[in-house]
Every structure is written in C-alpha cells, then in structure tokens.
C-alpha cells in the first residue's frame, strides 16, 4: 500500500495553487490528507501532482465576520473542537466535531478537506447544510460564493470546479435567546462513519413555541439534506414529539437511502427519523435550558 509516484508542490498562495490545478488535470490539492492519503495508498486515487495547501498563510482561521463565523478551509478539526468562538456561536458544530474520526485524525483533518471530499456521512457537511453555510472558493483569481445546499451534488461529488480551491466558509450565527441544538448519530463503533445522523438547531419563543428551526439529515442519502417541509410545519408549534415524528417521517418518506455492508437502506430510512426526532428533542430541551441525557 504505497502511493503511486507524484510530484509534490507547496504553493505560496491560493492563486498559485489554482494555477497548478489548471496546469495539470490530474493534480490534486492536499490539506489534512486523512481521506486522500489512504485512497492514494490503495491507489484508488493517483494524482500526478499533489498541491499542498497546508502552509498557505491565511487559510486557517476562525473569526467573526458580520453576522457569521468565518472559517478558513485549512482550519483543523481539532482547532474547531477547541475554539471558544465555535462553542459560543456555532454550538451545533461543537456538538458534532467529536464524532469525526479520532483525535489523531482531527488533529490533521481540515474542514475544507472534509467539505470537498463530500462523504455522505461527513458531519461537517451536515452542519454546513443545516446551518445554511456559504462556501467560498477561488478560481481564476476570483472568489466565488456558493450555498452549502448547492455545493453537494452527489456521494463524494461537489459542484466545485476542478481547478478551484475552497478557501473557507461562513456560517450564519443565530442571535437571540432560547436557541438550542441537537446532534445525534449512530454507527457500529463510536468513531466510525455514521450510518445515519441528524443535526438540529432551534429557536423558541418565550412560551416555548418554535420560532425558527433547521433540521439536517446526514449519512442516509448521497449528501446531507434539509428537512425543509418538516421545518415549515414545525415553526409555530410546540415541537411536541408526536408532531415532530409525523412531519419528519413525512419529510423522509421518499428518500433513496444508501445501502451498504454496514447498514441497509431500510435501516437508514427508519433510523433517520429517530435521529431527527431525537435531535429536535435535544435542541428543544437545550433551548429551554433542560439537561440532556448523554448519548
């Protein structure tokens, strides 16, 4: 399991990286490499040139940017995990990060790498879709924005042009009181890829009525999806369990769930409902300041 030969480059800036991609259609970017390197070791990926963007200045950051938190593409998962900004402003992401791989892979893995890899089970993609993140990438010396919901187009497939480089993303911060989050996922071993996952963020009125809600379902389908119809039906409700279950079930009724060695499509489809219901319940409880039971 040795990678096929390749040339190695370490561009000084992002435009140089893009130029290297443009010059060689088999060139690939490497950031954390936690997915790409094993693919290369198995020779399932065989770039002729590896463009290492790890040390490009200014690609790793977590900062406030207007009403959003901006995160640089090469920001490592462990930095997100430890970030007080993320914990305060994007608590849903803070909940999801520990579910990504292991500490040792989070130490290298980057958020940008995970997004462009677009694994159906990836937690960061789910968070990006759930929270309406806007991704930005650089191509041809221009910076282009794309909504997370339009970025993912298939299992391991994104709409990112092949000569572009993802530079970062912005996640809008929800402001106000009584905001709660819930994240659930199920897998065989605690650190495996999720069979099914769900991320939910909710804001309640003073009387506990749902003012705003975002429900994301991950790993069940080719790429993370928002349960928009359920969200619409739940705004204005008290998020009682029966209603949540009904609308979530309806929203997931027609999905084409993935089927593989680890979980059947029937399992994914069914448990996606449970995960979403639990995530909504957790989000509601945390918005109300109730203590959650551990999962």
């Amino acid at each position: 399991m040795k990678a096929a030969p390749f040339e190695y480059s370490r561009p000084a800036d992002i435009d140089e990286a893009c130029a290297m991609l443009a010059a060689d259609e088999n060139a690939r970017l490497i950031a954390g490499g936690q997915t790409l390197v094993p693919m290369m070791a198995m020779r399932l990926a065989r770039p002729t040139r590896l463009v290492d963007i790890n040390r490009i200045a200014g690609l790793s950051y977590i900062r406030q940017d207007g009403d959003a938190i901006a995160i640089g593409a090469t920001t490592r998962q462990c930095d997100l995990e430890r970030s007080a900004t993320i914990a305060r402003d994007i608590p849903l992401m803070a909940k999801a990060i520990p579910w990504i791989g292991h500490a040792a892979t989070r130490a290298r893995g980057t958020i940008g790498g995970s997004l462009v890899n677009a694994d159906p089970a990836a937690e960061q993609a789910l968070i990006a879709v759930t929270l309406d993140a806007v991704l930005n990438y650089r191509e041809d010396k221009k910076t282009i924005e794309i909504a997370a919901g339009e970025f993912f187009v298939g299992a391991m497939v994104t709409s990112l042009p092949s000569t572009a480089c993802l530079t970062g993303l912005k996640i809008p911060v929800w402001h106000g009181d009584r905001i709660g989050t819930g994240f659930h996922e199920v897998n065989a071993r605690r650190s495996d890829f999720a069979f099914v996952s769900s991320a939910v963020q909710v804001q309640l009125d003073a009387d506990g009525t749902c003012k705003r809600i975002a429900i994301g379902a991950g790993a069940a389908t080719d790429f993370p999806m928002r349960l928009t119809s359920a969200e619409q039906q739940l705004v204005g409700s008290k998020l009682d369990a029966a209603k949540v279950k009904d609308v979530v079930t309806e929203a997931l009724a027609d999905i084409e769930a993935l089927d593989d060695l680890h979980a059947t499509a029937a399992y994914r489809k069914r448990v996606a409902v449970s995960m979403a219901c639990r995530a909504v319940a957790d989000a509601r409880a945390s918005a109300l300041g109730e203590k959650l039971h551990a999962h």
Partner: peptide, 29 residues
C-alpha cells in the same frame, strides 16, 4: 459477536478488506 466479519458479496468479492469495513473493537467498545 458484534463487529467482525470477512463479508463477501454475491460476486465472491471480499468487501470487508480494510479496517474501515472489518471492524476491530476499540477502547470505546
């Protein structure tokens, strides 16, 4: 009992041939 199997598909291909698919218990399990 719970995790490990050298699973094959109907074509006779071993589909649990990496540690991503042949699951060894970690300290969590």
């Amino acid at each position: 009992a719970l995790y490990e199997e050298f699973a094959y598909n109907d074509d006779g291909q071993l589909i649990a041939q990496t540690f991503m698919d042949y699951l060894l218990p970690s300290s969590h399990e």
